[in-house]
Amino acid sequence: FHVTIHVGDITFHIHGVSEEEVKKLEELVRRGADWREIKKTIEEIEK
């Protein structure tokens, strides 16, 4: 999957994300995680 996440003024683009990881990111966004937490999760996914 290709994912784009907008957190305030920050936009993250992630490529090659599995469905499971998409759900993890959706959950973070849904519970209102700040951009640092989302960035950390994205960095883990990209490894």
Score class of each variant (00 low, 15 high):
Phe1Asn: 10
Phe1Tyr: 12
His2Ser: 15
His2Val: 14
Val3Ile: 12
Val3Phe: 12
Val3Met: 13
Thr4Asp: 05
Thr4Gly: 02
Thr4Cys: 05
Ile5Ala: 01
Ile5Ser: 00
His6Thr: 14
His6Glu: 09
His6Gln: 14
His6Ala: 09
His6Val: 12
Val7Gly: 02
Val7His: 08
Gly8Arg: 04
Gly8Gln: 09
Gly8Phe: 05
Gly8Ile: 04
Asp9Ala: 11
Asp9Leu: 08
Ile10Asn: 08
Ile10Ser: 06
Ile10Cys: 15
Ile10Ala: 08
Thr11Trp: 11
Phe12Leu: 10
Phe12Glu: 01
His13Pro: 01
His13Gln: 13
Ile14Tyr: 05
His15Cys: 10
His15Asp: 10
His15Trp: 14
His15Ile: 11
His15Gln: 14
Gly16Ser: 11
Gly16Met: 12
Val17Lys: 02
Val17Ile: 15
Val17Gly: 03
Val17Arg: 03
Ser18Gly: 12
Ser18Phe: 06
Ser18Trp: 04
Glu20Asn: 10
Glu20Pro: 07
Glu20Asp: 11
Glu21Trp: 15
Glu21Thr: 15
Glu21Ile: 15
Val22His: 07
Val22Ser: 07
Lys23Val: 09
Lys23Asn: 10
Lys23Ile: 09
Lys24Gly: 04
Lys24Arg: 13
Leu25His: 00
Leu25Cys: 01
Glu26Asp: 08
Glu26Ser: 06
Glu27Leu: 06
Glu27Tyr: 06
Glu27Met: 07
Leu28Cys: 02
Leu28Thr: 02
Leu28Ile: 05
Leu28Pro: 00
Leu28His: 02
Val29Asn: 03
Arg30Val: 09
Arg31Gln: 14
Arg31Tyr: 05
Arg31Asn: 14
Arg31Gly: 13
Arg31Lys: 13
Arg31Phe: 06
Arg31Trp: 06
Gly32Lys: 04
Gly32Asp: 05
Gly32Arg: 01
Ala33Leu: 03
Ala33Asn: 02
Ala33Phe: 02
Asp34Gly: 08
Asp34Glu: 05
Asp34Ser: 09
Asp34Tyr: 02
Trp35Thr: 03
Trp35Met: 08
Trp35Leu: 12
Trp35Ala: 07
Arg36Leu: 15
Arg36Tyr: 10
Glu37Tyr: 02
Ile38Asn: 00
Lys39Asn: 05
Lys39Arg: 08
Lys39Val: 10
Lys40Arg: 09
Lys40Val: 07
Lys40Cys: 08
Thr41Gly: 04
Thr41Ala: 15
Thr41Met: 15
Ile42Arg: 00
Ile42Pro: 00
Glu43Phe: 04
Glu43Arg: 05
Glu43Met: 08
Glu43Val: 05
Glu44Gln: 08
Glu46His: 12
Glu46Asp: 09
Glu46Leu: 15
Glu46Met: 15
Glu46Lys: 10
Glu46Ala: 11
Glu46Phe: 15
Lys47Gln: 13
Lys47Arg: 12
Lys47Ser: 13
